[in-house]
Nucleic acid binder design. Structure first.
Lengths: 347, 347
DNA sequence: ACCCGTCCCGTAAACGTTTACGATCCTAGG
DNA sequence: CCTAGGATCGTAAACGTTTACGGGACGGGT
């Protein structure tokens, strides 16, 4: 089966009518439509995407850009695949296909995105892993291509995004630890160039201030969000004089390495030190003592992202009305025993 | 910047010449070419992909199809992102972009692939997670679209693929364990509908036969390739009468759950039972005792896949000559202590 | 002076769709 | 019988690019 032309002459109908029949246009006899659909099915005809895109200037494809930076590769885990599931559950209802656009290691994400946008291969985009200064927002806004970011924008201008509530998590974690009597609390985070790293520490800092505890930069341990990173955090923790009695992790995978390093030094999480972590994943369940951490449904976050995106696409916006296109996604505390180690309560 | 037409009249050159200049065709003055390239760069012009594809019947995009089936989502880890890195390192040299096509949970992979093929959104495909009977091979062959599978084909006809050497791993694992005196060896594997599950157990069975050990189906423990699956394997192991003295895992993540379950029962891996696993990942390093497992460079496997694929694309085949398009990818044994538990040697 | 070849460029067709527009047929109302 | 209008369909233009083809300018060889 070559194209719509062959299908049309096989049916002895004009190609215009065939197109209208396939696309559900109103002015076509129901009986003809049935014949066309049957023939298309039988001959396995599917419209050529290039021709269609060229004509109507739309591809019906949404792109999810992911950076497989060294760091991401190590920790992204199944996060993106799970988000993808949530996205698709919404997008497919509108016959929008989702593709993933992996930015190569050695290419600048901005340049990569520019290429993809210019090629006009997708109608809209979801970008991820936003940075403190991220030129991609303005690029997309200027190109007038609808998008939503997984990760907030810190620039002044308002862009659509949804982001996990790092701020709130750091806050709650500090609150909880302080309530247990801790006052010297370390925190691990990736580079502050990455929004995640910045926001997380900001929330921590403000929470400390609220409790009247001085913010000590030495307690902010920058490390990779991997097991190795966790091990390294343990290392640095042990080297600190006046060792912290509690530590907040940004990523549960790190707990594996951290536990290991601490155990090697004879320090037992939950007994000699309190550990709280952001973002629980299934594997954290197998740590012992069980990790106290914050969790959410990543699938539902994908759904939220899709809805924000559709709401900013002219063709779908009336179906997804919103008053705000910026979502801070809440997380839920899953108590474990890793923070059972308590000091005297403050009062 | 709209299209090549605007660019052409801005330069006061015909659109044909502009196109030739941009595409590096020979019959264009070098000085004009420079002007064109400069103007394109300055105005940010990039050729519209739809127009180009429509004309030359090629998209310069390669698709990597992944199934985010429940099982895959849980264990795929960063396997696909790492493979993607290897693929891109080759494909980008030929200006071929890679996109990932995630098949939705609730859609049949075959139907999904059919849609993607018919839409003609990619020039060639990499498919993954091949099944015992996998109609996708014939679909792609019939559609004459170049492809390579990550995972072997078990049908009679010859298709291009590269696959990890499950067979060899099971073989070596059994050899090693038998040499240590074990004769009652359990194995974990996913469903035998999946090639991986089938081949792995086949290799195990043949190795046992070679050593004159009877194959006992009760020792084949089907489970998910996740921590939970590992825990479950431990459960079943404990329930077996005449408990095996050794167990072979298909996936290192499972070791986390298995260790946990065994420890709960007071059985220490490496002391009371021998554990060997397929496919090492970074996190396995943090298990204690260290897991004995087989490892390879997944990145390089991606490179191999890309080369097989290009060798079967007419436009590139002369650059990648091969006599065979089927690769069994070897793995390397990384000895740990999880299999230090030895029985009397046989002789 | 003539011809041929090379270099460069412009023209226009073609790729497969969608869709605005107009044509045809039929029915119903007068 | 005439006509308005709805239902259905055919025609052709348009989307943005690549590329086959042909033509003009120029230079060198005879």
């Amino acid at each position: 089966m070559k194209g719509i032309r062959q299908l049309a002459e096989h049916l002895d109908i004009s190609i215009g009518t065939v197109s209208r029949a396939l696309n559900g246009k109103p002015d076509v006899n129901e009986e003809t439509r049935k014949r066309v659909l049957a023939a298309a099915e039988q001959l396995g005809y599917v419209a050529n995407q290039s021709g269609r895109s060229l004509r109507q200037g739309t591809t019906n494809v949404i792109g999810l850009m992911i950076q497989s930076s060294r760091e991401t590769v190590e920790n992204s885990d199944n996060f993106f695949l799970t988000v993808t599931g949530g996205l698709q559950s919404v997008l497919l209802r509108h016959k929008l296909d989702l593709i993933m656009l992996p930015c190569p290691h050695d290419e600048d994400p901005y340049e990569y995105l520019k290429r993809m946008v210019a090629r006009r291969i997708v109608d809209a985009l979801i970008i991820s892993e936003t940075h403190r200064v991220d030129k991609r927002f303005d690029l997309l806004a200027k190109a007038k291509i609808p998008f939503v970011a997984l990760g907030r924008s810190l620039s002044g201008t308002q862009h659509p995004w949804a982001d996990l509530d790092f701020d709130g998590v750091a806050n709650s974690a500090v609150d909880r630890l302080v309530a247990h009597g801790h006052r010297r609390i370390a925190i691990s985070a990736p580079s502050s160039d990455i929004n995640l790293g910045f926001i997380f520490v900001e929330g921590y800092r403000r929470a400390l201030e609220r409790h009247g505890i001085a913010y000590d930069p030495a307690l902010v341990l920058r490390a990779k969000s991997s097991e190795q990173g966790g091990y390294q955090v343990g290392d640095e923790l042990l080297k600190l004089q006046d060792r912290p009695t509690a530590v907040i992790l940004i990523y549960e995978l790190m707990a594996i390495g951290l536990y290991r390093r601490l155990m090697e030094a004879g320090i037992v999480p939950g007994r000699n030190i309190a550990v709280v972590s952001f973002r629980e994943a299934p594997r954290a369940k197998f740590l012992q003592p069980a990790l106290t951490c914050f969790r959410t449904s990543v699938h539902d976050l994908g759904v939220e992202l899709a809805e924000i995106l559709l709401s900013s696409m002219p063709a779908y916006s009336q179906e997804y009305p919103r008053n705000t296109r910026q979502t801070i996604w809440p997380l839920e505390l899953i108590p474990g025993e890793s923070d059972s180690f308590q000091l005297m309560a403050a009062e």
